[in-house]
Amino acid sequence: MENEVLQDVMLTATILIPILAALVEVLKKAVKLPKNLLPLISVVLGLILGVVSYKFTDLDLVLRLWAGAFAGLAGTGLFEALKTRIGTTK
């Protein structure tokens, strides 16, 4: 039973990640935001998306919040991993 719940949380997070990454990118282009706040904004938006996803999943609110938080953290990492930096090094 616990394994199924964890799988449902991760499945929900996996679905939310690209949606969240796109929302953060749109927000970043629309409003000038400090780059160091983007992960926090991503997590907050992930929590909001987790709450709003009640129509699409049978998960409890707490589990949807966890999925949203995972998606927020992963969404920021996904965008940074895929973004190409031409001519710069880190």
Results as ranks from 00 to 15, higher is better:
residue 33 L to M: 14
residue 63 L to F: 12
residue 70 F to Y: 11
residue 27 L to V: 07
residue 21 A to F: 02
residue 21 A to G: 14
residue 63 L to S: 13
residue 61 L to H: 03
residue 17 I to G: 04
residue 25 E to A: 14
residue 7 Q to R: 15
residue 14 T to P: 00
residue 14 T to A: 15
residue 7 Q to A: 15
residue 81 A to Y: 14
residue 34 P to S: 08
residue 70 F to I: 15
residue 57 T to C: 09
residue 16 L to Q: 14
residue 54 Y to Q: 11
residue 40 L to W: 07
residue 89 T to P: 03
residue 60 D to C: 01
residue 69 A to R: 03
residue 9 V to E: 00
residue 16 L to E: 08
residue 56 F to C: 03
residue 9 V to Y: 06
residue 47 L to G: 15
residue 43 V to G: 05
residue 51 V to K: 07
residue 60 D to P: 08
residue 47 L to N: 02
residue 38 L to D: 02
residue 52 V to Y: 08
residue 26 V to M: 09
residue 5 V to N: 11
residue 20 L to K: 03
residue 9 V to T: 02
residue 67 A to M: 06
residue 12 T to I: 03
residue 15 I to S: 11
residue 50 G to T: 09
residue 21 A to K: 02
residue 17 I to A: 11
residue 5 V to D: 06
residue 49 L to R: 05
residue 32 K to F: 09
residue 75 G to W: 01
residue 40 L to R: 00
residue 19 I to D: 00
residue 39 P to Q: 07
residue 20 L to A: 09
residue 43 V to E: 01
residue 46 G to V: 04
residue 51 V to S: 08
residue 40 L to P: 00
residue 35 K to M: 03
residue 4 E to H: 06
residue 22 A to I: 10
residue 10 M to C: 14
residue 60 D to V: 05
residue 66 W to P: 00
residue 59 L to Q: 11
residue 8 D to A: 15
residue 1 M to P: 12
residue 13 A to W: 02
residue 81 A to K: 12
residue 41 I to V: 14
residue 16 L to K: 09
residue 9 V to C: 09
residue 74 A to V: 09
residue 85 R to K: 13
residue 86 I to K: 11
residue 42 S to P: 06
residue 37 L to I: 11
residue 87 G to S: 13
residue 16 L to V: 11
residue 48 I to R: 00
residue 20 L to G: 14
residue 75 G to S: 15
residue 34 P to I: 00
residue 41 I to N: 04
residue 58 D to G: 15
residue 89 T to L: 12
residue 41 I to M: 10
residue 37 L to D: 02
residue 63 L to Q: 13
residue 77 G to E: 06
residue 83 K to M: 04
residue 80 E to T: 07
residue 22 A to W: 06
residue 45 L to H: 01
residue 10 M to S: 10
residue 36 N to V: 10
residue 70 F to V: 15
residue 70 F to Q: 00
residue 3 N to D: 04
residue 59 L to G: 12
residue 27 L to R: 00
residue 25 E to R: 07
residue 76 T to Y: 13
residue 18 P to Q: 05
residue 33 L to T: 13
residue 35 K to W: 03
residue 30 A to I: 07
residue 41 I to Q: 03
residue 24 V to R: 02
residue 2 E to K: 10
residue 78 L to A: 13
residue 17 I to T: 15
residue 52 V to D: 05
residue 12 T to S: 14
residue 56 F to E: 05
residue 23 L to F: 11
residue 85 R to H: 15
residue 77 G to C: 03
residue 54 Y to W: 14
residue 50 G to M: 05
residue 45 L to N: 05
residue 83 K to H: 12
residue 78 L to F: 14
residue 72 G to P: 08
residue 58 D to K: 13
residue 72 G to M: 04
residue 90 K to D: 12
residue 45 L to R: 04
residue 80 E to A: 14
residue 26 V to Y: 07
residue 23 L to K: 01
residue 82 L to F: 12
residue 21 A to T: 13
residue 60 D to I: 01
residue 36 N to T: 09
